[in-house]
């Protein structure tokens, strides 16, 4: 059994209107039926563009937002059904690292106080001495100097702050860490340091990660399994290498072709699938396949009327597309006019 299993999780936010009576006039379908499982010791990467519901899903696992329906089973317990106090205690084993390291650290608490707070709340460590020893141990693990303890968040650089955020999660000895955009606020040279650190920690401490990010290259680098989200639901899920080698869902293909690769030779030679238009509103999602309004492979039948389920197509590869097989073997081709071959190779030396 997997360590963390999500079963048809839905998070709908009501849209209210009116002064006296809070009439609910509709819902924002932020997460609309996501099922996935995360194996112990592995990294599950969740990618998608802004507004696809990936962050909400991560927060729903920790019940930081209310789950409308569905189950979140962690190590045999359904977190969705736990009463408040028990949920609070369960959070020791499920920790989160946030995107904005400065925004998620209290500017008026020094590092020691930030790191101790969680331990006291969960009753870890017999006395202050023991807690301090443990904090120093973790600080060394995340690569911060011991003298950091008496300093405040503003005294650190972005990369160091993210290390503090990671240390805060680690002092509680969690099993699962949910990393919500752990490196997107950092410069690339610092990004690599933090990504390497996350990998080292996973190896030495046997952690399980759920990494939420918009950067497909980052997610591919650290994940064992990747789930691609679009407008509140998973459209494709596969082991990292397989997803890259054989993306089956049109959205995944478009997303991959849009990610710039720092290599002019690759950039000049590749074909871009340009999507037209913007993401539809999650308050008023399209009927049928959520992606059909922008899909270059859209067909006359099914796409606009029936919502495709996530089907297993072998090798742990799941796709939610009616025509995945036909697209893969080339019987269905992309609508004309959508594609633009990459810029013509120019006459540069080398």
């Amino acid at each position: 059994m997997s360590l963390l299993e999500l079963d048809d999780v839905k998070v709908h936010f009501p849209v209210k209107r009116g002064v006296f009576f809070d009439r609910t006039v509709g819902h924002v379908y932020a997460v609309d039926g996501v099922s996935l499982s995360v194996e112990a010791g592995q990294t599950y990467g969740l990618v998608g563009e802004s507004g696809c519901g990936k962050t909400t899903l991560g927060r729903a696992v920790l019940r930081l937002v209310d789950i409308t329906s569905g189950g979140v089973v962690f190590d045999g317990t359904d977190l969705a059904a736990l009463p408040g106090e028990e949920m609070r205690r369960a959070r020791r084993r499920l920790q989160m690292v946030f995107q904005d390291p400065l925004g998620s650290l209290d500017p008026r608490q020094n590092i020691e106080s930030i790191l101790t707070e969680g331990m006291t709340a969960h009753g870890i460590g017999a006395d202050a001495g023991e807690r301090r020893k443990r904090i120093l141990d973790i600080l060394a693990k995340v690569g911060l100097p011991a003298n950091a303890l008496s300093r405040y968040p503003h005294e650190f650089s972005g990369g160091q702050r993210q290390r503090i955020g990671i240390a805060r999660a680690l002092v509680l000895e969690p099993d699962v860490i949910i990393c919500d955009e752990p490196v997107s606020a950092l410069d690339v040279s610092i990004q690599a340091q933090v990504l390497n650190l996350l990998e080292e920690l996973q190896e030495s401490m046997g952690l399980t990660y759920l990494v939420i990010a918009h950067d497909l290259a980052v997610v591919r680098h650290i994940s064992d399994v990747i789930g691609v989200m679009y407008l509140g639901s998973l459209v494709e899920e596969a082991p990292s290498d397989l997803l890259y080698a054989e993306p089956r869902h049109p959205y995944t293909r478009a997303l991959m072709s849009a990610v710039p690769v720092p290599d002019p030779v690759v950039e000049d030679g590749r074909e871009r699938i340009l999507l037209t238009g913007d993401l539809p509103s999650p308050a008023d999602p399209p009927t049928g396949c959520r992606f059909h309004t922008r899909c270059p492979w859209k067909q006359e039948t099914l796409c606009a009327t029936e919502r495709p389920a996530l089907r297993d197509v072998g090798d742990g590869h799941r796709v939610a597309c009616h025509y995945a097989a036909e697209i893969a073997d080339g019987t269905i081709t992309r609508a004309a006019g959508e594609a633009s071959p990459a810029s013509t190779p120019e006459t540069s030396p080398v």
Partner: peptide
């Protein structure tokens, strides 16, 4: 060397620049 590349094989470690600006 610090940029994870979409087309790089998985498991290839990143070579970060140490320190910060």
């Amino acid at each position: 060397g610090s940029i994870p590349r979409l087309d790089a094989p998985r498991g290839e470690p990143l070579r970060p620049i140490r320190g910060s600006i």
